[in-house]
């Protein structure tokens, strides 16, 4: 893995390249952009470039350097395997503990200790948008006037979830969703079928990470079945479909978190199905996502009224919100199918 292997993100690469060559590397960056587009990979490569033994940024080397690393020296290898003493990763999601001031202390300590090897002390926080207000507050002074050599990178999917006081101190580097065809190609390389790759690339909003996650969790066939089932929803079978949906999502799920994630994916499938119907009714050709089930989309778009489809989409969005807010999953699904039947079946 090296910088070249990170797809897209031209802006970020260019930005850091220029910052480094002008000797204007700051101490606090916020990487903002959707999950799964390479923020973490980029942060790792950046850290490697700072410590790489062949890198131009090492002291003693000419300071006008290029942002690159060899990925084979001991420093690079250790960063790649999370074993470098001066590169600290903090994961808000996994620990789920970074909620109080005390929990943010390790981060401070990591930055305030003298570097063990290189000239830098790097701390990278994943999912920083989940930092609690207290934890974020406790970082403020450090973020403004950090110890020499410190470099802090926050990775955040939702920039607006970070307090304004934190945002105001950092240089925000944007990470963009990848073009759809790039994602498609990447998925194909991972062995996904062409049709599946195209579909996942469209619904994952340019995030290969997310597309792969969906692909692993729920196959393409799952989506086809689901759409089929909802296209033939009737007053007789609606609750059965809801039950089936719940059961499928729970199948080999480790815990309720897992099931919730799968349910959210399934609802996303449905959202894009009804969105296609909606768009087709507005005669927007060529923007369809469910091309593999185009007949179904066309048939339903003739049968359903725009108003009804609009309502169904609203209900699906509502369902997604309810699932995210931990409502009773059984109930949410039953209500969903009932409401769709009421709107879709005359």
């Amino acid at each position: 893995m090296s910088f070249k292997d990170i797809k897209g993100q031209k802006e970020a690469k260019e930005f850091f390249q220029k910052a480094v060559s002008k000797d204007r590397l700051g101490f606090f960056y916020i990487f903002a952009g959707p999950d799964g587009v390479g923020k973490g990979l980029f942060a790792r490569e950046l850290a490697k470039s700072l410590f790489c033994e062949s890198g131009a940024l090492r002291p003693g080397k000419p300071s006008v350097g290029t942002l690159d690393n060899c990925s084979s020296c001991p420093a690079c290898l250790r960063i790649d395997s999370d074993n470098h003493p001066d590169v600290n990763w903090l994961d808000v999601r996994e620990s789920a503990e970074l909620v109080s001031v005390k929990d943010a202390r390790p981060l401070q300590d990591a930055l305030y200790l003298k570097p063990a090897e290189g000239p830098f002390k790097v701390a990278i926080v994943r999912q920083a948008d989940r930092l609690s207000i207290a934890a974020a507050n406790s970082l403020l002074k450090t973020l403004e006037e950090p110890p020499p050599g410190a470099l802090l990178i926050l990775l955040a999917a939702a920039l607006e979830a970070l307090p304004a006081t934190v945002r105001s101190r950092g240089q925000v580097v944007r990470f963009y969703p990848l073009p759809r065809d790039v994602v498609e190609k990447m998925l194909c390389q991972r062995g996904l079928g062409e049709e599946e790759a195209r579909y996942l690339a469209a619904i994952s909003q340019g995030s290969p990470g997310r597309a792969l996650e969906i692909a692993q969790r729920d196959g393409f066939q799952e989506k086809r079945n689901l759409v089929e089932a909802f296209a033939h929803l009737s007053k007789e079978n609606d609750l059965k479909v809801a039950e089936e949906l719940y059961r499928r999502a729970g199948k080999d799920a480790q815990n309720s978190m897992e099931r919730r994630k799968r349910l959210l994916n399934l609802i996303t499938y449905l959202l894009y199905f009804y969105r296609d119907i909606y768009l087709l009714r507005e005669e927007a050709q060529g923007l369809l996502v469910n091309e593999d089930q185009g007949d179904l989309v066309r048939r339903l778009s003739q049968r359903l009224k725009s108003g009804a489809v609009e309502k169904i989409i609203t209900i699906l969005l509502e369902t997604k919100r309810n699932l995210l807010y931990h409502s009773n999953q059984h109930l949410v699904l039953a209500v969903l199918t009932k409401e769709i039947v009421n709107l879709a079946v005359p």
């Binding site: 909003q205 894009y272 609203t314 969005l317 995210l324």
Partner: peptide, 14 residues
Amino acid sequence: EIKETMEPRIPVEM
């Protein structure tokens, strides 16, 4: 809606 449903595209299109 984007914020609450984590669905970035459909609410905008609607």
